[in-house]
Amino acid sequence: MSRVIIVDDAAEAVADTPDGAVVLIGGFGSAGQPVELIEGLIESGAKDLTVVSNNAGNGDHGLAALIREGRVRRMICSFPRQSDSWCFDEKYRAGELELELVPQGNLAERIRAAGAGIGAFFTPTGYGTPLAEGKETREIDGRGHVLEYALAGDLALVAAHRADELGNLVYRKTARNFGPIMAAAATTTVVQVDEVVAVGSIDPEHVVTPCVYVDRVVPVTRTLAPTVAAGVAR
């Protein structure tokens, strides 16, 4: 893994994304969603994307805008339907977008497995439900388990709070969510941060994502979604 590159422009940081790429996008609703990097991805023109993200966009910005622009062919997520997921709802109902629904813990563990070199795993989550239909099962310690495969990305877009110049990352509160596991699970990981600090400024004990997982860091000034600022996003 080559050393991290600090890129000032979000669009430049994701400009080489090919059509058809599998893109892991961090965030839980708007918390930790790398909105500026997604806007850069829209600018790049990449299309036919498979996007892996917990939700399927909120309001009209970020992931919602990527979907509205028709760039996403397939969405792998746990909770697409929300009060403000109208961009997704419209494309889904029009049949312009495929949905693979995955229980949230299986989604997280599949991503973690990809970054950890684990090909697949058996989990009790989902056993006996419609979301396990057609999947291999096994009884382990008297309990039904379902085989779930690792889920890797060509590109991960992650929002962290702070990076040092080597790409060591610290997150903020519940905006951490999928960031650390997605950073590890993609061929190329691009991270937007509120600030870049000198090497040595982050206590090594506090580093959450070590720099080995990070390829590009983009300092951004965050624009908050109005729904979040008003505290009414549900």
Partner: peptide
């Protein structure tokens, strides 16, 4: 905006709280 619950509602943290990835 970085501190929400499972319903995406803004919440607060109590002393002794901890954060971890998904």
């Amino acid at each position: 905006p970085d501190l929400v619950n499972a319903g995406k509602v803004a919440v607060s943290e109590l002393p002794g709280a901890s954060y971890f990835h998904h």
